[in-house]
Design a protein around this nucleic acid. Structure first.
Length: 835
RNA sequence: GGCCCUCUGGCGAAAUGGUAAACGCGCUCGACUCAAAAUCGAGUGGGGUAACCCCCCGUCCCGGUUCGAGUCCGGGGAGGGCCACCA
């Protein structure tokens, strides 16, 4: 059958998608002898329709997965849906639909769009986190972690989102201009004291921090953000006895070297000692202040713009180093949950302390002098705190020591005398995961009057979400209003009891889903550890950088717990992370209904075909950069694929060329062969190194340009063209897989009818053809380009120099000057340095 | 305030310390056509110049290292991201 002259993706793409499906081409695990590669893209959250951002991530991952298969690896490339959670519930409420139905609908449309883009997913492993078969294992992990003391109930200060009507994690609070809002719905966030469940992620703070050192193939941006978020800070705790009472105030400081400059001590309003130390004559004022702080929004109270406020308690604390008696204050800027909730104030060397001292007329004492430059003025003449390390002054027996040395000696002395010690504090907080909402994993706990909080026995899992809940998005947990759900019996005493009505944060679902893909239908265990042995850790994980601290931290935490449970082989879940940039609208702004600049993938695929969309995503820029959608560039990529198509059509006569003639190639035939093999190298390099797929595609374009430039005559040229066409189709396979299959079959003819290009080995280049035999060498005089010479690649310095000196132009520049030095870079450059 | 990233033609972007701008978009011109579209081909950083001979300038700015810097080092600017009264 003669080849269609026109490139019509609509007629060829579905055909190949069906063939890959029928052949189970992308099913993982059917190359048992081969090395494995696990390529994963972050699974989508189907609260709406698929957008261009999704098309980009999956295209990047897909190109990689397809290429690795062609390299001979046994590739696992699964997909699923992150279906539970607030946004889905909120969207469903808005549409007057049940979240389960809404989610199901969205998933159907996602699946169809993903298939139409030709992604090489192993669909047999698909998971949906809203299925009880999935979330029962969330419950299972919860119970395992409860056993190990990694889950606990706390009376916590929680971030209460006024829009979502639920508690959200620290990581989910946004702050802008001193106002805290919800990351999801942008409603104001208040601080609320309520009981909640939390994971003891802080127990892993050190391990999670150290683990980052192993993650050399993660973007530094991400590891840095995690490092900051975990926030290790080294310092010391020091006890300040309260005069006239047995109490001691424990403070945390990173600047123990400044303790001789401490002029007062400040407690957080919530500090447990506040009531005990406050003198009777200050009680009323202190109580009023504490009450007011309790009622104020967190951001308003502790935001940076907030004025520093405090009250004196009347108490005095004793500086254990100096014996001085210092006033004890309470202030809004001291946080109960960081350090010990109490600070020693050194106004001369801490800006906050300085401002507070100036406001309330507290003394300022300078104890650190700079190493270089003039001395720091005395406290009363200071304009601002000097916060750098320096040399100690006015600090008893520590005078003259550099700050770092002073800190070491002072903490050793404090320890020896029993009033302090070196400690490490973390910014990372435990992960509060209770949600007072419906669309989440029920927390498998039963409250019994007799036995308290009783874990649901493992054999009674899953605790299923009831279908009939009334979901209003307000008030108490929706599950509390479903008697059939709430009312149960105690697993210990069988008397009537109530179920926990809170559900789990969605981040629980995504913390371990990558492991569920290994045995997605397993009903005995979350996944098969034997398969984990084979497939984990993930080799390449592709997703947005917005997950740098939340998902990617929980995911590392969970993997560590699974590692300790003996379920996974490594402490870290993923070797290499690729963070892809955003797809902006054509106007360069974030795609949004508000700007009317949203371009949906569906219609574009319909119009140009999946291959054009994929090529655009890969050619526009390297993966990590943001790109702007560009109709002109998309046209351009469609034009390129059409141009590829036409050159196959125009060179049909070469399809039957005799391969044996390749060995006689010379002149243009040889040149084309060189280009072909260099293209193979270039595309392979682009995939291997930094995923620079854009330059790989550029190389393919150059090959096509060269093919157009050669009108083949004779057996050798025809054979060279055939070789180039086969290479072109094969190299195109990871990027534009449908057109590639079609063209490859055209050129290979009936002999290959039963084969799939997706199964073919990735081509190798012939080193002899990649190395050039003649090269152009730039000739410089004093580093400025003055000409160029053609020479054999292996030409030596003397030979090239002779050629260069023979150039008229170069002669002019060298005339009458002494050549002081000659720099020769073989195959590249010759530089004459003249004086 | 802290930490991090980015800055190259009209635009998206290339460039192991070695000919800056590959490749694509856009634009101009030519071929094909009655004409247009599509396609194929040529050209396209700025300035000087009769000249597509040649010369000068050119990768945010200033300085340094080097025979040679978009690339390395120091300082500054602009834009962006994350964190932030964290003691």
């Amino acid at each position: 059958m003669p080849m269609n002259e026109r490139y019509e993706p609509q007629s060829i793409e579905p055909r190949w998608q069906e063939r890959w499906d029928a052949a189970r081409t992308f099913a993982a695990g059917n190359r048992p002898g081969a090395e494995k590669r696990y390529v994963l893209e972050m699974f989508p959250y189907p609260s709406g329709a698929m957008h261009m951002g999704h098309a980009r991530v999956y295209t990047i991952g897909d190109a990689l997965a397809r290429w690795l298969r062609m390299r001979g690896y046994d590739v696992l490339h699964p997909i699923g849906f992150d279906a539970l959670g607030l946004p889905a519930e909120n969207a469903a409420i808005k549409d007057g639909m049940h979240p389960a139905a809404r989610t199901r609908e969205n998933i159907v449309s996602f699946r169809a769009e993903m298939r139409s883009l030709g992604y090489a997913f192993d669909w047999e492993r698909e998971i949906v986190t809203a299925d009880p078969e999935y979330y029962r294992w969330n419950q299972w992990f919860f119970l395992k972690m409860l056993e190990r003391g990694l889950v606990y109930r706390r009376q916590g200060k929680a971030n209460w989102c006024t829009g979502c009507m639920t508690v959200i994690a620290n990581e989910q609070v946004l702050e802008k201009d001193g106002v805290q809002t919800c990351e999801r719905c942008h409603s104001p966030v208040l601080e609320k004291i309520i009981p909640e469940w939390a994971f003891r992620i802080t127990a892993y703070a050190g391990a999670l921090l150290q683990g980052l050192d192993e993650l050399t193939a993660w973007p530094e941006r991400v590891t840095t953000m995690q490092r900051n978020w975990i926030g290790r800070s080294e310092g010391a705790e020091v006890d300040f006895p309260v005069a006239g009472s047995g109490e001691r105030i424990k403070v945390f400081t990173t600047r123990l070297d400044t303790i001789f400059g401490c002029t007062y001590v400040v407690l957080a309003p919530e500090h447990p000692l506040v009531a005990a130390v406050t003198r009777p004559e200050h009680q009323a004022e202190v109580r009023a202040f504490v009450e007011r702080m309790r009622r104020t929004e967190a951001a308003e109270r502790t935001g940076e713009g907030a004025p520093k406020e405090g009250v004196f308690t009347g108490a005095e604390a004793v500086n254990p180093f100096t014996g001085e008696r210092l006033p004890v204050w309470i202030a809004n800027f001291v946080l109960a949950e960081y350090g010990t909730g109490a600070v020693m104030s050194v106004p001369a060397h801490d800006q906050r302390d300085f401002e507070f001292a100036r406001k309330y007329g507290l003394p300022v004492k300078t104890v650190i002098q700079p190493v270089h430059g003039g001395p720091t003025p005395a406290g009363d003449r200071l304009q601002a705190a000097t916060t750098e390390d320096g040399v100690l002054a006015d600090s008893g027996r520590y005078v003259g020591l550099p700050s770092a040395e002073a800190r070491r000696r002072m903490s050793a002395d404090a320890k020896a005398q029993g009033f302090g010690a070196e400690t490490v504090r973390w910014h990372l907080r435990d992960w509060g995961f209770s949600r007072q909402r419906y669309w989440g994993t029920p927390i498998p706990i039963i409250y019994c009057e007799e036995h308290g909080a009783v874990p649901v026995p493992l054999d009674q899992l899953p605790v299923k979400l009831p279908d009939q809940a009334i979901i209003t998005g307000t008030g108490e947990p929706p599950l509390a209003k479903v008697p059939e759900f709430v009312n149960t019996t105690c697993p210990i005493c069988a008397r009537p009891a109530r179920r926990e009505t809170e559900t789990m944060d969605t981040f629980v679902d995504s913390a371990w889903y990558y492991a569920r893909y290994l045995s997605p239908k397993d009903d005995q265990q979350p996944f098969d550890p034997k398969l984990a042995e084979r497939w984990l850790p993930i080799d390449v994980y592709v997703g947005g950088p917005e997950h740098a601290v939340m998902h990617l931290l929980y995911f590392r935490f969970w993997n560590r717990v699974m590692h300790e449970l003996g379920l996974v082989p490594s402490a870290e879940p993923c070797r290499r992370l690729v963070t892809q940039g955003i797809v902006n609208g054509p106007d360069g702004r974030k795609m949004s209904k508000r700007w009317g600049n949203v371009v949906a993938p569906g219609p574009i695929v319909k119009r140009f075909g999946a291959d054009t969309v994929r090529m655009f995503m890969l050619f526009a820029a390297p993966p990590e950069k943001d790109i702007d959608w560009s109709d002109e560039q998309v046209d351009g990529l469609f034009r390129f694929l059409s141009r590829v198509w036409r050159i196959f059509h125009a060179r049909q006569a070469c399809f039957a060329a005799d391969e044996a003639a390749l060995s006689e190639a010379s002149g243009p035939a040889l040149e084309l062969r060189r280009r072909t093999h260099r293209t193979i190298r270039k595309v392979t390099d682009g995939l291997e190194t930094d995923l620079k797929l854009n330059t790989g595609i550029a190389a393919l374009m150059e090959l096509v340009n060269d093919l157009y430039a050669l009108e083949p005559t004779g057996a050798a040229e025809q054979a060279a063209v055939r070789e180039a066409l086969i290479a072109l189709a094969t190299l195109l396979a990871p990027f534009a897989p449908h057109a590639a299959e079609e063209l490859w079959h055209e050129v290979r003819g009936p002999a290959a009818a039963e084969l799939l290009l997706a199964d073919q080995p990735w081509p190798a280049f012939a080193p002899a053809l990649v190395a050039a035999d003649t090269v152009t060498i730039a000739v410089q005089v004093n580093g400025k380009l003055r000409g160029e010479v053609r020479a054999a690649a292996e030409a030596g310095e003397a030979e090239v120099r002779a050629l260069a000196e023979a150039l008229e132009k170069v002669k002019g520049y060298l005339a009458g000057k002494a050549v002081r030095k000659v720099v020769f870079v073989p195959k590249r450059l010759m530089n004459f340095v003249v004086g």
